[in-house]
Amino acid sequence: MTDDAYLVLITDTAPDLGVPPAAAGESACMETPAVRAWLQAQGVSATSPDLRLVPPEETAAIPEDAERIPVPLGEEELIRVRHHLAPENLARLEEELLAYRSRVDGRDALLTRALAAGVPAHRVAELTGEELSVVKSMAR
């Protein structure tokens, strides 16, 4: 396994490989000089249906003779690519986990703001489901 994601020109032997580049959203890697030159050398555009982004853990499935180039994908881009590769039932759970992450990212700041605004610690604990001792420790 490699740590690089790859942009691959698919062949008849690998039709189910990876996801179209659009699955990663507006990826900056598609505008890099190296990728632009590679696309030109392959005679395809960035929107070609024959292009696939393959995450690092799936690169072993790339046929040896496939045209490919390593591409730098950011964490969010990789999350989107992996999400598109997941079976539908897992993709729904992944969406819930991402929503959860976005809610807890600002947890400490939100608790501190609520306490500073005068919301009693017991009410913050009740509304958030946090332990009262945790909420009280945020007030210090």
Rank of each mutant, 00 (worst) to 15 (best):
V134W: 11
L53H: 08
S45E: 10
P87D: 08
S27K: 07
T13P: 00
E57Q: 15
S48E: 08
T13A: 15
I62D: 08
V104W: 09
L110R: 15
D105G: 03
S48D: 15
L51Y: 10
P55M: 12
P49E: 05
P56W: 00
A34F: 10
E126K: 15
A46L: 04
A28M: 14
E67T: 07
V124E: 02
L132H: 03
S48Y: 10
S133V: 11
T2S: 12
A116R: 15
D108P: 03
T11I: 04
A41E: 13
P20L: 12
V135S: 05
E77L: 01
E75Q: 08
P21I: 11
V81Y: 03
T59G: 05
R68A: 15
V81G: 01
V35H: 03
A114T: 04
G74W: 08
P56Y: 00
V104D: 01
R36P: 02
L7F: 02
E88S: 13
A121S: 10
L127A: 08
E131L: 09
E64M: 13
R52C: 04
D4V: 03
A28K: 12
G106V: 04
S48T: 06
T47D: 15
A60K: 14
V54W: 06
A5P: 02
V104K: 04
D105V: 14
V19I: 09
G106I: 00
E58D: 14
S45K: 09
D12N: 07
E76F: 06
L93W: 10
I10Y: 00
A99D: 04
R80Y: 09
G118I: 14
I69Q: 07
R36G: 05
V8R: 02
S27H: 15
H84K: 11
A22W: 09
P20M: 05
C29R: 09
L78F: 11
P70F: 07
T32G: 13
V81E: 01
V54N: 04
A114F: 07
P120Q: 09
A23S: 15
R92E: 12
G118L: 11
L132D: 00
R80F: 10
A114P: 01
P55L: 11
A99Y: 02
V135Y: 02
T112S: 06
P20S: 11
A37Q: 12
S27I: 09
G74D: 08
L110P: 00
P15D: 08
P33I: 10
E75I: 01
R113Q: 08
A41F: 06
A28T: 14
A86L: 11
G18Q: 03
K136I: 14
T112N: 05
A5Y: 05
G25S: 10
T2G: 04
R92A: 14
P20D: 12
H122A: 06
L85H: 01
E95P: 00
E31C: 05
H122M: 06
V104A: 05
P55A: 12
G106K: 12
L78K: 01
